[in-house]
């Protein structure tokens, strides 16, 4: 019991110190991106946003066919209607966002200095609803994914620019996301990195594992396996299930921090969403 107490105490003391001294997002970003650039010298840096399609010519040809008239178009149209509809109090989603919500998704997730927490686009949309007396939306699919699809479509091509302010809480959130990404979990004992860093570009049956670099740039995505458009959270839940781990709650800090880490790793790449994946 006493040993446990010491351990807990040690952890509590160690985390801020570790976060302050060891966490260096800028260095992580450089190392992360250069790992993928070295692993896939044939892939143009900006093409990483296209995931498996950057790695496989046949998949890319099928994707090009599908993108002639992408199946997420219905989501964009529906999302636009939802985004522009007034709340009962007369306000709109646009009132909650910088630049009226247009062309801003490349800046998400954001660190909220008031709460010390990470706000993903999904959380920001639900916060906006709460401010105007509306119940939260399911964070994984449906209207949430549609609104996000519309907002993302207005940011298509803009350069991802996720900021980590010099605030120990922001660094701690980032570090927690990074730790989640590299931690093994589930009965298969896989980390996110097992498939999307070490295994990136390899085949699972006929599927090509997408590289973690560029991954968040195309969300929300229409997945043929889903038959609908879904958010990054939906993919997190699915990934957890695929390695036989218990998924976190959609609005959990764990997922927000993970999204924060992943999106930061994509800084400098263009938004390529909404996207389409097999």
């Amino acid at each position: 019991m006493r040993r446990l107490l010491y351990a807990a105490l040690g952890l509590a003391l160690a985390v801020p110190a570790w976060a302050a001294t060891r966490t260096n997002p800028a260095a992580d970003l450089k190392a992360f991106q250069s790992y993928f650039h070295k692993k896939f010298p044939q892939v143009a840096p900006n093409d990483f946003v296209n995931g498996p399609y950057a790695m496989d010519a046949s998949m890319r040809a099928q994707w090009n066919d599908i993108m002639q008239f992408p199946p997420f178009q219905f989501s964009i149209d529906n999302g636009k209607a939802l985004f522009n509809a007034a709340f009962p109090d007369g306000h709109h989603y646009a009132d909650c966002f910088a630049n009226k919500g247009i062309g801003i998704t490349q800046n998400y997730p954001q660190f909220d200095a008031k709460t010390g927490k990470i706000v993903t686009l999904e959380l920001a949309i639900n916060h906006c609803r709460a401010e105007h007396g509306q119940p939260p939306l399911d964070m994984s699919a449906g209207p949430m994914a549609d609104i996000e699809a519309y907002m993302t479509s207005t940011s298509d091509g803009k350069i991802i620019n996720v900021k980590i302010p010099n605030d120990p809480r922001a660094l701690a959130d980032y570090a927690a996301g990074e730790q989640y990404f590299y931690s093994r979990r589930g009965q298969l004992n896989f980390s996110c990195a097992s498939c999307h860093v070490q295994g990136a570009g390899d085949h699972l049956r006929s599927d090509v594992l997408a590289p973690a670099l560029g991954m968040t740039a195309s969300f929300p995505i229409y997945r043929s396996t889903w038959g609908s458009t879904g958010t990054l959270v939906r993919r997190f839940i699915e990934c957890n299930s695929q390695v036989r781990a218990v998924p976190s709650k959609p609005d959990s800090d764990a997922y927000s921090n993970l999204a924060y880490f992943l999106a930061y790793m994509n800084n400098g790449l263009p938004v390529a969403g909404p996207g389409e994946r097999p």
């Binding site: 049956r205 006929s206 599927d207 090509v208 594992l209 997408a210 396996t225 695929q242 097999p278």
Partner: peptide, 10 residues
Amino acid sequence: VKVTLGGCGG
């Protein structure tokens, strides 16, 4: 046309 199970790609 070859078809295999999907779901883990992307």
